[in-house]
């Protein structure tokens, strides 16, 4: 402080500004810590999602290698939440929301996606909040806002889309759950398999769809419907963000629909496990030259 006075011209307001400096420094330090933690949480969450994308089945517990592989990332996330929980208490609970929201959303996306793969259901807000709370330190709980949760779900639909497309490309089928109650005898084949055998004209009848266990597309459609029904508060920042993400979500659903269309129309023409080849993709490009 003596140094600062030496460098700066003296001012009658020096004492006042020195007081402000102390408070602002604390504020900036807290903000900095939250920014860093948010970044780390985002990165670790992305890695968790990557690992999950290597799976091909839904509605069953994660295989041990996935659990083991992701353990370190969960550890990182818990550590980061613990480190900043003291900075996000009381008056400051929402103060650094802009800084933490990105990490929260990405973490939500990971939790949501994993929960979906395990149970084929959507994790509830309260459960998601408890997951973050469980990772927070002794100083108190880190808030997961409704906004973080909803925006995280939007992002999760993109992951489900990638998951579906990958599965269709590699296995030639849309991921579907195992039937909860088994009234039908032949539950083994996934939903699109009968469609493959059927004439193209007939397609998948409503009846056969009902009998099948839910597949990823029907889940995506349901999620889309729910999200579109949700009415965000007027003129809020959240609304803008939600609208942007809603557009991406609709595209995701459509991508899966298109992929399934292709699978339905051409599926029977292609050998099982056939993946769009590099050669065929490039051919028109060469011709155009």
């Amino acid at each position: 402080m003596g140094d600062a006075k030496h460098e700066q011209p003296s001012t009658p307001y020096a004492a006042m500004f020195e007081g402000f400096r102390k408070d602002l420094d604390e504020h900036y330090d807290r903000r900095e810590r939250v920014v860093k933690a948010s970044r780390d949480i985002t990165a670790a969450s992305k890695k968790i999602i990557f690992t999950l994308q290597r799976l091909r089945n839904i509605g069953q517990p994660l295989p041990p290698f996935t659990v083991k592989g992701n353990a370190q990332y969960w550890g990182t996330i818990a550590e980061r939440y613990k480190a900043i929980s003291a900075d996000l208490q009381g008056l400051n609970a929402y103060r650094y929301n802009m800084q933490i929201t990105h990490g929260n959303q990405e973490f939500m996306e990971a939790i949501c996606f994993q929960h979906y793969i395990e149970t084929q259901t959507l994790i509830s807000y309260n459960e998601a909040k408890m997951r973050v709370a469980a990772m927070s330190g002794e100083a108190g709980v880190v808030q997961l806002t409704v906004e973080d949760y909803i925006l995280g779900i939007y992002d999760m639909t993109g992951e489900v889309m990638k998951f579906s497309i990958t599965s269709m490309a590699t296995n030639g089928k849309l991921p579907a759950g195992k039937p909860k109650k088994g009234p039908q005898p032949s539950q083994e084949p996934p939903s699109d398999q009968p469609a493959d055998k059927m004439d193209i004209d007939r397609g998948v009848t409503a009846q056969s769809e009902e009998q099948q266990p839910r597949n990823v597309l029907s889940d995506l459609r349901e999620l889309r419907l729910r999200l579109e029904m949700l009415e965000p508060p007027r003129t809020s920042k959240f609304r803008n963000e939600a609208e942007k993400k809603a557009t991406v979500m609709r595209e995701s659903v459509e991508k899966v629909e298109k992929a399934l269309y292709n699978l339905t129309v051409r599926g029977s023409e292609r050998p099982k496990g056939w993946v769009p080849g590099v050669r065929e993709e490039r051919r028109p490009e060469v011709e155009s030259y």
Binding site: T121, L122, S124, Y125, V146, E222, L223, R226, L230
Partner: peptide
């Protein structure tokens, strides 16, 4: 028995409305 428990979104809407 769908993917989404309808209560989840009812709860969300209530919270969003409250903030609104």
């Amino acid at each position: 028995n769908g993917m989404v428990d309808p209560a989840i979104f009812q709860d969300l809407q209530a919270r969003v409305d409250e903030d609104g």
